[in-house]
Amino acid sequence: MNEIEFLSWVRGPGFQIATVIFVAGIIIRLGETLLLGRKANLAEAKGSEMSSGLRTVAARMLPPDRETFKRSTFTIVAGYIFHIGLFVTIFLYAPHILLIKDVIGFGWPALPSQIVDAFTVVSLIALLAILLHRLTDKVLRHLSGPEDYIVWFVTIAPLLTGYLAFHRLGGSPVMMLAIHILSVELLMVLFPFTKLMHTFTLFLARWYNGAISGYRGVES
């Protein structure tokens, strides 16, 4: 298989396989979670489950109270940076929007590629700092297992290969583009079966947290 054949495989069958696993996997994971169900609360309510749940979904998107922020500054700041960076690079880069338009039928305006490039660099630095933090902080070392490092790798790989391909570094442009797409497919395949699923399940988790707390009259 030469470069061109490799590129057309990752663009064609490779991408299709990854998409099927990604979509089916997410549906299975959300299904097996939600179908477990939950008993209704029989205690007399002091607040609403629904509105408190929704409130917590939104509230935990924002920075926490000042003291919590002070205690976990690095985790919070670095976390925001790379999540925003990932969002911008995935969803606001012109070629990505074209691809998405191909799949779902509609697109949206892109950011200039220089700006996306800047976000990529900042995200790469944040992710490297996050790895260093995970390797050196005693709590994170205690919590971390192979999955945490694998997930870190499959998250940074598309960013790095995309950056290299964009700047025509590290090999032939065709090969670099193919490797970039392959790295995204790796991310998609692992997504439903790792902690990457938090992208979707955190909405459920936050809702339950807010509902449990809000039922008792406390905003969480």
Binding site: R29, T33, G37, T68, V139, L140, L143, H198, Y208
Partner: peptide
């Protein structure tokens, strides 16, 4: 003890360690 809330919680943990800083025992 496993229900949809517990499953959502475990599916969502990213091992960030922030809970340690909120715990007196840590």
């Amino acid at each position: 003890q496993v229900d949809s809330s517990v499953a959502s919680f475990f599916s969502s943990c990213v091992h960030c360690g922030m809970c340690a800083d909120a715990c007196v025992f840590y």
